Simulated scan of single mutants.
Amino acid sequence: MVVETCTIGFAKKTLKKFIGLLQEENVKHLIDTRLNNTSQLAGFAKKEDLDYISQLVGIKYNHFLNLAPEAEMLEDFKKKRIPWDEYEKRYLDLLYKRKIENDLDSFLQDGKPCFLCSEDKPHHCHRRLLVEYLQQYNGDIQIIHLV
């Protein structure tokens, strides 16, 4: 059975657009993969606000810190001390070390999941790496990037 799994970033989106994309795809579980989800820079996407907004539209919200990159690797990439391919390798190694594939059922049990981070597009974002990693353990996962 094919399991549709979405990803979304909140950057460059209004709240209306963000929620609209989730509703159009019938997302039931918003999974926050960010290291820091309380920053004022997050706007409407701060943890407490997202939890509240999600509940209003019938979407469960969870923050899974074990899906976030480590602070050092994220900072190294943002400050251009490492290129994307090094960041990608370090993040995938981290997922392997954390054995997050063992949590796959918990991500899927509440209905169609959507993995959240800040990046507008998935190309250079850990949420894409994450779902592709999970897809290796469940070949029936179909990935949909909401942009």
Rank of each mutant, 00 (worst) to 15 (best):
M1P: 02
V2H: 03
V3L: 05
V3W: 04
E4W: 00
I8W: 02
G9A: 07
G9V: 05
F10S: 13
K13P: 04
L15V: 13
L15P: 08
K16T: 13
K17W: 00
F18G: 10
I19E: 09
I19D: 01
I19K: 12
I19P: 01
L22A: 10
Q23L: 15
E24P: 00
E25D: 10
V27L: 09
K28T: 00
L30S: 07
L30N: 07
L35I: 11
N36M: 01
N37K: 09
A42S: 14
F44M: 12
A45Y: 06
K47R: 14
D49L: 14
D49P: 00
L50G: 08
S54V: 02
S54E: 03
V57Q: 01
G58Y: 09
I59P: 13
K60S: 08
Y61Q: 06
Y61D: 08
N62I: 04
H63S: 14
H63Y: 04
N66L: 09
E70Q: 03
M73A: 01
D76L: 02
K80P: 00
R81E: 14
W84Q: 05
D85G: 00
D85K: 08
E88K: 15
R90Q: 13
Y91C: 03
L92D: 02
D93W: 00
L94E: 04
L95R: 13
R98F: 01
I100Q: 11
E101A: 05
N102M: 08
L104G: 10
L104F: 08
S106Y: 06
S106M: 07
F107Q: 04
L108Q: 04
K112T: 15
P113F: 03
S118G: 12
D120I: 01
K121V: 15
K121F: 14
P122T: 09
H126Y: 07
L130M: 10
V131G: 04
Q136L: 11
Q142R: 11
Q142P: 00
I144P: 00
V147H: 08
